[in-house]
Design a binder for these strands. Structure first.
Lengths: 128, 128
DNA sequence: GTGGTAACACTACCCAGGTAATTGAAACGA
DNA sequence: TCGTTTCAATTACCTGGGTAGTGTTACCAC
């Protein structure tokens, strides 16, 4: 449950979270360096973002020397779940099948992916 | 393709779109009346929102008497697709299977839904 | 015609995400 | 010791979603 679902996360914030989930810990500089070169953002932008995110409870930091070392304060799957659920609820009235149906209709899907899906569903049925 | 994906839509805007998709056309008053009573919003809020949405190209209006009759300017599935794709890309690097896997792990899913999913995937495999 | 009401128009907020310059302090290097 | 770099802190600004008050007009009922 983890107190008040997270379902809104901007692109930048999500990228930052992904870096943190990936590395466990990272300084502002690390995060800045780790981000996709496609859009070169200022170092200060990262710093500001991280502070805002800490205020919101998404990350925490500790001091090491005079650097802030950040880490995620929420687990990746809690966030994924919050966001995915929110979308399923908003768009498909909570029906996973409707969502998948829609995705299958509108996206390219490889045979491998379909096979994987079949297997996932079969497994899930066992576990019912 | 409909020019530039729509992947950001706030809750209110999405609700409004759903009303329009549902009815085809609706006046501000209709939309206002149709919205979930849970949060009673002012009539003017709807009017403002609809004007903003028109500026963004989400809806159009025509004049009938002195009322604006709004209709959606983008199709429901284009929007669903934009939003769903965006999420799949952001959270699961574009892998539908990863997304479904995640959802299957973290959500309650009924046997019926699993069966429906199986069928959907089987059908999709045919059509490959 | 006059007054109420139903419509849009305009304007103003708030908030959060995103972006960054500026400032100030600490550390480091010569 | 003095300049340069490296950090964090502060501040500011833009955008878009959301919310609504106020203003204005047009129309309908008396």
């Amino acid at each position: 449950m983890t107190a008040s679902r997270i379902h809104r996360l901007g692109d930048l914030q999500l990228h930052i979270m992904q870096v943190l989930w990936d590395r466990g810990e990272a300084t502002v500089g690390d995060v800045h360096a780790a981000l996709p070169g496609t859009r070169a953002l200022a170092y200060t932008t990262m710093a500001t973002m991280l502070r805002k995110m800490e205020a919101r409870g998404l990350v925490k930091h500790r001091l090491e020397g005079r650097s802030f070392v950040y880490r995620a304060a929420v687990a990746a799957d809690v966030v994924s779940r919050g966001m995915a659920d929110h979308l399923v609820d908003r768009l498909f009235e909570g029906s996973l099948a409707d969502m998948v149906n829609h995705l299958l209709k509108t996206r390219e899907v490889s045979r491998e992916e379909l096979v994987r899906l079949e297997r996932l569903i079969a497994e899930r049925k066992q576990r019912l």
